[in-house]
Design a protein around this nucleic acid. Sequence first.
DNA 1: TCGCAAACTATAACATGTTATATAACGGGG
DNA 2: CCCCGTTATATAACATGTTATAGTTTGCGA
Lengths: 161, 161
Amino acid sequence: MEDVLRSLGFLCLGSRLKRIGEQLQADTQRLLDCLDVPVQSSQYPLLAALDRLGPLPVGELAQSLGITQPGVTRSVSLLSDLGLVEVTQSDGDQRRRMVSLTKSGRSLVDLAKRDVWPRIESAVADLCRDLSGPLLAQLAAIEDGLAAAPLDRRVEKGTAQ
Amino acid sequence: MEDVLRSLGFLCLGSRLKRIGEQLQADTQRLLDCLDVPVQSSQYPLLAALDRLGPLPVGELAQSLGITQPGVTRSVSLLSDLGLVEVTQSDGDQRRRMVSLTKSGRSLVDLAKRDVWPRIESAVADLCRDLSGPLLAQLAAIEDGLAAAPLDRRVEKGTAQ
DNA sequence: TCGCAAACTATAACATGTTATATAACGGGG
DNA sequence: CCCCGTTATATAACATGTTATAGTTTGCGA
């Protein structure tokens, strides 16, 4: 069965990038499920942003993640329900709501940084190893690579080094 | 403001690909809006699949697009409401529902193939021109390129050649 | 040939992005 | 000093992907 998105080349590049991204996130999610962490893979960028940049107001968090403010507001309230982040207003400006990691969020991030993220990163790096040449060829290689061995199968290989 | 996804490199590649894909689709949507076509950019792959492969049952359509069957079912019913595709059961197997372009869908695709898709393709090709090197570098170049001149600004340049 | 597992599609529930808009707080100019 | 535009966030409505599951047909095998 012909892969139409691939055949269309540049024309539907956006759809194709989204499709590959979803595949990667789904694979990552399976990894996380095995490791018994209670957060969707798509929430990690937000946690990583707070880890790297410290407490931030909603708007700046949105900017640093490259998504819109309503998206951040929703993720924050989700993570807040899970007890991983908290929202305070201590600042002088009552409009701004500072988002920060809770103790529990801090622990999760520290654990992830030590045990989980390196594995994921090495699995993805393994997938992308030796890629070169035009973008579309690299994308095709990633798709083929994921089809041949999903990320979870690349983790052990990656950490064995 | 640091771009966290970019800093994280391979770790959040999935999120980053999705973000770039969404950006491309949004830019494409703006192009389509100018040209007064009544369909979201994300529906074009389905129409293109029917154009390339002819009438297909829902399941094969899903396979050729690399998305799940419920996603196709919903898009088909949306496009069917717009009168662009139709669903028939003529086949021997009563479980299968063949999806095909209507006359109106055929016209839209023909028009798009002649007037719209070449412009989009050349704009994206322009964006990706001269890309080379490691994947992450190419992605960064695409993001920078889109920030500097969104797709709609690249159309005239592209068609002028 | 009857029954039941497999195959195909539809539906429900959810995830997470978007745009548009409402609400509340800030702060400058008359 | 108050009004009003600007800024920050929340909410609503929608788009479109997913997984899980229900409901029909089909067709094989006892």
